[in-house]
Every structure is written in structure tokens, then in C-alpha cells.
């Protein structure tokens, strides 16, 4: 236990050092250091892209939004105050960009729904079976959470993100974020328990092999 505690403390200190280092990237970028922004992009490419994917967006939209977000970061670089952590600032831009996109998308869909006959887009049984096999159920469950819960949950999954930061990003009180997180976890637990029950049924000795 003592070894684990020491390791955690060392990790925390390392994270702190890393945090301080990344706060200088935008200043260096503004100072003309081209490597600084590349460094920033490299550090945030996976967390940001994962954040987008976990909202159930397809690859094309994720790529577009990824570009938009980093261009916005570049354009707003002078607004960043190095006295504050960089991660929440970047994810604030990300969440706002995502919301803009979702709003535009929903407007677009509304027009389409009115204008055209809506086709049944549900996957056929074969596709469903394929989806079940290939898609990670957990990411599916995350993407199907209500929007507010999904935002809180996906942000909470970003390494080092605190509830206080999430509240500031989403403009909500900390207690509201906690409630949303709890509801999201309950939804995920329900999905998990359903899956476990299904798994046990499939693997029971009397069951048929599903391999």
C-alpha cells in the first residue's frame, strides 16, 4: 500500500509538472515557436478525438470537428491565461464546438424530416448482429446517454479532469454535475447488468454454445 501511495504521489507531481509545462505551449506558439503548437496537438489528439468519438459521431464528423477545434484554439490562443490549467480551456472550446455542430445538425435534420419521407434507418437483424459483434457495447452505451449526462461523463473520463472544471466548462454548479454523473453511471450500470445477465444465460451449462 505504501508503495502504491508513493507511486500515486509521484504521478501527481509529474502531472503537475506536465501541466505547468503545457501551459507555456500557447505562449510559445504566440511567440512564433511552431513546435509548440505541434506539441500541444500531439498531447491532445487522443483525448480530444476520443471525446468526440464517445459522443457517437462518425469518423468524418470527428475529423471535421477535430480540425475546427484546433483552429479555434489557434485563433483564441491569445485569450488563454497561463495562470489556469490548459486542459479545461481546450475542452471548453471542444464542448462549444461540439454543441454548435449538434445544433446545426439537429436543425438540418429537422428540415430533412419535414421535407422528405423518413426512412426506417434501424439496422436489419443481420446488421444488428454484426453491430453487436463489432461495436464495443460500452461506447455504444456512452453514446446513447442523454446529452447532458454524456457531456459530463465523457469529460469526467478525460485524465485529470475534475468535477469543478467540468462545472466551469459546462456552466453548471458542481452538485448538478455530480447528479448528472450519478445518473449516467446508473444508466451504464443497468446496461452492464443486462449484459452480464445475457452473458450468464449464454454461458450456462444448459445453454447453447455461442462461440
Amino acid at each position: 500500500m505504501r508503495i502504491m501511495t508513493q507511486t500515486k504521489a509521484a504521478d501527481t507531481r509529474q502531472n503537475r509538472v506536465a501541466d505547468l509545462e503545457e501551459r507555456n505551449w500557447l505562449a510559445a506558439h504566440l511567440g512564433g515557436d511552431q513546435q509548440a503548437f505541434a506539441q500541444l496537438m500531439q498531447a491532445y489528439r487522443k483525448p480530444l478525438y476520443s471525446f468526440l468519438v464517445r459522443h457517437g459521431l462518425d469518423t468524418r464528423h470527428c475529423d471535421d470537428l477535430f480540425q475546427d477545434i484546433f483552429l479555434k484554439i489557434h485563433k483564441s490562443a491569445h485569450q488563454y491565461q497561463a495562470s489556469k490549467p490548459l486542459s479545461p480551456w481546450i475542452f471548453t472550446i471542444a464542448i462549444n464546438t461540439l454543441r454548435d455542430f449538434q445544433r446545426k445538425k439537429s436543425l438540418h435534420l429537422t428540415v430533412v424530416e419535414v421535407a422528405e419521407t423518413i426512412e426506417d434507418e434501424r439496422p436489419d437483424p443481420e446488421q444488428s448482429a454484426h453491430l453487436t459483434e463489432t461495436m464495443d457495447w460500452l461506447e455504444e452505451a456512452l453514446a446513447s446517454l442523454p446529452k447532458a449526462q454524456a457531456e459530463a461523463m465523457t469529460l469526467s473520463m478525460v485524465k485529470g479532469m475534475k468535477i469543478k472544471d467540468i462545472g466551469a466548462m459546462l456552466g453548471l454548479p458542481v452538485n448538478t454535475i455530480k447528479s448528472q454523473l450519478r445518473r449516467a453511471k446508473q444508466s451504464l450500470m443497468s446496461a452492464f447488468q443486462a449484459r452480464q445477465t445475457q452473458h450468464r444465460t449464454q454461458s450456462s451449462p444448459s445453454g447453447v454454445t455461442h462461440e
Partner: peptide, 23 residues
């Protein structure tokens, strides 16, 4: 949960777009 990563192509294009604008 696995981390998703953007393709190197998109990454390079984004970086190029940023660098195109003078700092």
C-alpha cells in the same frame, strides 16, 4: 476504454492549416 486517435493525415492537415496562419 481504448483511446481513439485521429488519422495522421487529418492531424497533418490540421497542423498545416494552423501553421498557414502566421502566429
Amino acid at each position: 476504454l481504448p483511446e481513439h486517435d485521429v488519422s495522421d493525415d487529418v492531424f497533418a492537415r490540421t497542423l498545416a492549416a494552423v501553421n498557414k496562419n502566421q502566429v
